[in-house]
Design a protein around this nucleic acid. Structure first.
Lengths: 258, 258
DNA sequence: TAGTGGTCTAGACCACACG
DNA sequence: GTGTGGTCTAGACCACTAC
């Protein structure tokens, strides 16, 4: 009884939204109301929401249900939470990368858009690649192993992407020193390796637990996956790999002539 | 005590994975163990997991914690749940679309990959567009309103994408009949409108509540967003809009010559 | 009818941030 | 220490599926 009255009071006090169909679960109804408030600008980007305890009181529901509503908003990228501090409305504008320059002058694009780009090498190994990489680099069973490099790309101290590259033996050998600290494209450039063509694809996946820890995002947050194989002249593969980037920070653009 | 013993017993019985660092929350530890089992093929795609009750017993935790672990797997797109039936390991391979044909012969790509493509019109309106659309179509304040069309794209009865298109007044008028039932590209083609260039961008967003209901995905599931402006000769904008597609069904590919 | 997942409650304890 | 979010429990009731 009391809670029903409270709920009605609050819902009219908090929002002038029309009542939603009652078939919706409570946590959805609440997260949608909060979403409306956020999008109406009643909470500014960066602003703190009321505490879970207070929201529970305001909506007349248990803290568990409020937590679920806030989890809904997190899944949609609308809020973030910080233990001991509170829940905050998300902000942020996207950095765009051109698909036309594959292997991509990430560093240049970052600088142009006002960020300091930096990479941190996670692994650099001489190993036997999985079959799909063998195929992309056009290698045969007897060929020597490839160089694998894995690194994190930072924009202003925020990790925004993980890049995994595979280089054929001959090329990786020449680059091993530079690859550890420089962006892939600029490394190739200083070695006089010019790219002539590329096959690329873009998809999106939810962050696994491991990726969510490396990129500091919630489990399941969308990541953009940029897959590429780059060729030098005569269609010789130079490098293949993928860039997994935070979708809240990045997008890819292209101009097409038909 | 008891639960700790049970947990150890089960974890050695269920998995031979090395013990994970104890700082991890229980629900993460459990979902990661289940993930390992799934990826090791101990549960086939489509196979049913044990019930939440049984898993709770097996791991020695409450049903709530098991539900949270399963929610983690859902966020990662690894399992789906069906009320009254159970939890099932996900399957599925992706349909790829070429970025080179913007506005894109979705229907042709679908047919080539063995699916029956179909669209369902949600809206067709003559309205005043938001400013970003005005800009993309190069319209001025005094210009007549545009045609807005919104539709769902199906592959074999599964909704895989939502397309939102804006057409300039002159063009929308000619197309209104066909647009309701046909794919955009094929409609333009039959009207003799040839596309000469396009600006496109790709990003990814988590599904909002509304989108999650339209595309039958869980809240927050990654969606690919393909934004486009297409031009006919003389750089005249013909249409702009976006395609929001299920990332578990779709990816975009392109060949690039540098 | 029995089994399953979906929602919600009430309450406990922990870990972190801030004054 | 107080307040905040993070984790976990035990148990209730509902809605859907299958037999």
């Amino acid at each position: 009884m009391t809670s029903a009255v409270l709920y009605d009071d609050v819902s009219s006090a908090m929002a002038s939204t029309p009542p939603r169909p009652p078939k919706q679960p409570l946590h959805i109804s609440i997260s949608e109301q909060l979403k409306d408030h956020i999008e109406a600008g009643q909470y500014e980007p960066g602003e703190k929401l009321p505490s879970e305890f207070d929201l529970g009181g305001a909506f007349g529901v248990s803290r568990t249900t409020i937590r679920r509503a806030i989890a809904n908003l997190m899944k949609q990228g609308l809020v973030t939470t910080q233990q001991g501090k509170g829940s905050f409305v998300s902000d942020r504008h996207k950095i765009s990368f051109s698909m036309a320059n594959p292997l991509m002058q990430f560093d240049i694009a970052l600088k142009h858009q006002g960020y300091v780009g930096r990479i941190q090498s996670l692994r650099f190994q001489h190993t036997h690649p999985p079959i799909d990489v063998m195929k992309k680099l056009e290698l045969r069973d007897g060929d020597p192993p490839v160089y694998l490099q894995e690194k994190i790309i930072y924009a202003d101290e925020s990790p925004i992407a993980i890049e995994v590259d595979y280089f054929p033996d001959a090329i990786g050998e020449r680059l091993s020193e530079q690859l550890a600290s420089r962006f892939t494209y600029s490394t190739l450039e200083t070695q006089g390796i010019k790219l002539h063509a590329a096959k690329v694809s873009l998809e999106s996946i939810p962050a696994s637990y491991e990726l969510s820890e490396q990129l500091l995002v919630p489990l399941g947050m969308p990541l953009l996956v940029f897959n590429f194989v780059a060729y030098q002249e005569k269609r010789i593969p130079v490098v293949c790999g993928k860039v997994l980037s935070r979708s809240d920070w990045t997008c890819y653009t292209s101009h097409i002539e038909i």
